[in-house]
C-alpha cells in the first residue's frame, strides 16, 4: 500500500501548507488547468502541464494586496505524444533533470475594470528569469474563485529549444500560456 501512504503524505503536507498560510486559498488541482499553444510547422498544437501548485491570496476588491506563487513541475509536460514528451524533457528543451521546476511570483496585480486584472512578475524557467505580464479574469461563486487568463512568452528567451532547435519555422518562438486556477476557500 505504498501508493496510499504517498497520498496521505501529500494530503498531510497540503493541510500543513494551508494552515501555515491562513489567508491563502487552496488550489483545486482537479478543476485547474495549465496549458499552452504554439505552432510547429505552421500547425497550431496544444500542450499542458499536469502537475503544478499554487499559493494564492487574491481578493478582487483588493488586487494590490495579492500574493501569488506558482510552481510548475516541468516533467509533467504533455505535448500530445510520448515521443514528443520525452524530447521536450531533454537537454535542448526543458532539461527537467537539472531544472525540474518553473516558478512565477506575482509582484503586482492591478484591476483593469470589468472583472479583468493584470498580473506582473518574474517567471523563472531553465535558469532564466524574465518578467511576464498576464491579463486574467476572476470569478467568484461561493467559496470558489476561478482565475482564468493567458500570457505570451518567447520560448527562445528561456532557452527552450537550444542549438538548431531555434529554427522558428519548425517551432514558433511564440508560446501562448493559458491557465485556469480554481481556488477554494479564503
Amino acid at each position: 500500500m505504498k501508493r496510499f501512504s504517498f497520498n496521505s503524505l501529500a494530503l498531510a503536507s497540503l493541510i500543513a501548507a494551508a494552515s501555515l498560510s491562513a489567508n491563502a486559498a487552496t488550489l483545486n488541482a482537479g478543476k485547474s488547468q495549465l496549458g499552452f499553444s504554439f505552432k510547429q510547422m505552421g500547425v497550431p498544437t496544444e500542450g499542458r502541464f499536469k502537475a503544478f501548485t499554487a499559493n494564492v491570496d487574491f481578493d478582487a476588491a483588493k488586487p494590490d494586496a495579492t500574493k501569488a506563487e506558482f510552481t510548475v513541475d516541468l516533467a509533467s509536460i504533455d505535448v500530445g505524444s510520448s515521443d514528443g514528451n520525452n524530447a521536450v524533457k531533454g537537454k535542448d528543451f526543458f532539461n527537467t533533470a537539472s531544472g525540474p521546476k518553473a516558478t512565477f511570483t506575482a509582484k503586482s496585480v492591478k484591476a483593469l475594470g470589468g472583472g479583468k486584472f493584470e498580473a506582473r512578475g518574474p517567471l523563472t524557467m531553465k535558469g532564466v528569469t524574465r518578467d511576464i505580464v498576464s491579463t486574467f479574469t476572476a470569478k467568484t461563486a461561493g467559496a470558489e474563485t476561478t482565475l482564468e487568463g493567458t500570457f505570451p512568452l518567447q520560448r527562445l528567451q528561456f532557452k527552450i529549444g537550444e542549438g538548431a532547435w531555434d529554427d522558428t519555422d519548425a517551432i514558433a518562438d511564440l508560446v501562448t500560456v493559458k491557465y485556469k486556477f480554481v481556488l477554494n476557500g479564503k
Binding site: Q40, M41, D83, A87, G163, A164, W165, D167, D169, A170
Partner: peptide, 11 residues
C-alpha cells in the same frame, strides 16, 4: 526524429 533537421523534414 533525431535532430532539428529530421524534425523539420518529417513535419
Amino acid at each position: 526524429i533525431t535532430s532539428p533537421a529530421t524534425f523539420k523534414l518529417k513535419g
